[in-house]
Amino acid sequence: MDLLLSLPVLSYFSGSLTSWSTSLNLLFFYMTWSTLVLSHSPLEVEIVGVAALRAALWLVPSLFFLAFDTLLPSLAENIKHNGASALPPRDVKALGKTAGLALFNFALELGVEAGMSLGLTTILNNSVFRTSTTLPLPWQIAKHLALLFTGREILTYYIHRYLLHGHPAPALHLFRYSGSSSSSSSKSKRTRSKPKYKRSLAALHSTYAHARPAPPYSLLLKADHPFPYLLHRLAPLYLPALALHPDGLHLLTYLLFVALVTLEETLALSGYAVLPGIVVGGMARRTAAHYATDKGNFGSWGVLDWAYGASVGGDVMGDLRDEAEKHRVRERGERKAGEVGGLVSDGIDGLRKGKRSGRTRKGKGGNGE
């Protein structure tokens, strides 16, 4: 419990904009982090840190969103994709089952990650993540985060599309039959193009995660069957981090990655249509379309969906174009406002100069009389 309460990961990245307070926050964080590293094992810091981040960035916001949607449904439906159909069910028993499954997967995910980290630490005779009192440099954090998010996007897309939704993998297209062939041969090819394990995973994912054809709410993030859930959420998160083990991925960078991914997924599955920004707002819209139609939008960021033509309800490039157009309109508006402001300022200066010159002429005429 003392480790959970003293974990300073979030404070490290939420410092004030003023230089002196930022320096104090970094100093405080360094002292606290050094104490944690020297007094606890790397596995303890990893698992408790991941648990704290997921509880703070998924569990608490999900329960808050659920309370808002159920207590103020008339207000919530106005800011939800697809309106009232996106609201959580009002059945207490159904919500209890969903919450129980989500909490079970929450604990299972932590247990599986702890087991893998412990096993790999034993095999490698070294901790999976670099855990030292030395903090990672900003450019190292940026580089590793870029690699982690890239790996996660690739794994999420292919696992989600070809395993959890039963689409034939690209290599299996060779087994498809085109032309005149016997029905038995065609049936054999179709069977080979969709193995039994793939049909089972797709059926489980469809039964649990897509139990209702409507936009999701954040609690559904972890309300999937355990097997598809671990493939869909844990594997794309943990495997890219393992791939960076030879490069010395720092535990702080991994915890920051977990925090960003957890917050992203919580907002993307919230179902709200009022989320700001091209990234989060676009992901929430595409996620809502995926759950409502059970088609397309298999990736997290939508880049591979756009590349493969699997986007539903708009794609990420459309979001970028819209945002660029907004910026152009804003820039043109600011430029026009600046021009109008300049004209008004020039006019006021002219009036002031005219008044001053008029008073000067009047004063000279009075002296002459």
Rank of each mutant, 00 (worst) to 15 (best):
A94E: 14
S34W: 01
Y229M: 02
E264K: 07
R330P: 05
P195S: 10
L147E: 06
L155H: 11
K97P: 02
R359T: 07
L304E: 01
P213N: 02
A52Q: 07
V340L: 14
P236H: 03
L343Y: 14
S186A: 14
A99R: 05
R90L: 11
A241H: 11
A273P: 05
Y217C: 04
V9C: 08
I141K: 01
E325G: 09
N25S: 12
A67L: 05
S21R: 13
E265L: 00
P276M: 03
R152K: 11
T293N: 13
S186N: 11
T121Q: 07
K222D: 03
E46M: 08
G111C: 07
L71T: 04
G314D: 02
S11P: 11
T134M: 09
T156E: 07
T22C: 08
A273M: 06
L75E: 01
K295Q: 15
R176T: 15
P138Q: 03
S39M: 12
V344M: 06
H232Q: 03
E77D: 00
L137S: 15
F129V: 07
S218G: 12
P228R: 02
A292G: 08
N126D: 15
V50F: 05
F106A: 04
S11E: 09
G248I: 12
D346W: 03
K198P: 10
S185L: 14
H81R: 00
R356W: 06
T253R: 09
G365Q: 13
A94T: 15
K93H: 10
N82K: 14
A171C: 00
L148V: 12
S11T: 13
F175G: 06
A146E: 03
L110A: 08
M116A: 12
G111Q: 02
V312R: 05
S200D: 06
K187Q: 15
V50G: 04
S127P: 15
G358K: 05
A51N: 08
D91V: 09
L267P: 04
S184T: 13
E264W: 10
D349Y: 06
R332I: 14
P236I: 02
A114C: 14
H167L: 02
I123P: 01
E46T: 14
T32S: 13
Y217A: 08
G338R: 03
M1A: 10
L5M: 10
A288T: 13
G179H: 10
L43V: 15
R356Q: 06
E325K: 03
E323P: 04
T191R: 14
P215D: 04
G365M: 06
S206E: 08
L275H: 13
L66R: 06
I141G: 03
R152A: 09
V274N: 11
P88D: 08
H205E: 00
S218D: 09
G281E: 02
L201H: 03
L320Q: 11
A99M: 09
R152Q: 14
G282S: 15
L72H: 03
E264V: 01
P276A: 10
L220F: 06
H245T: 03
L124H: 14
E325M: 08
L147W: 04
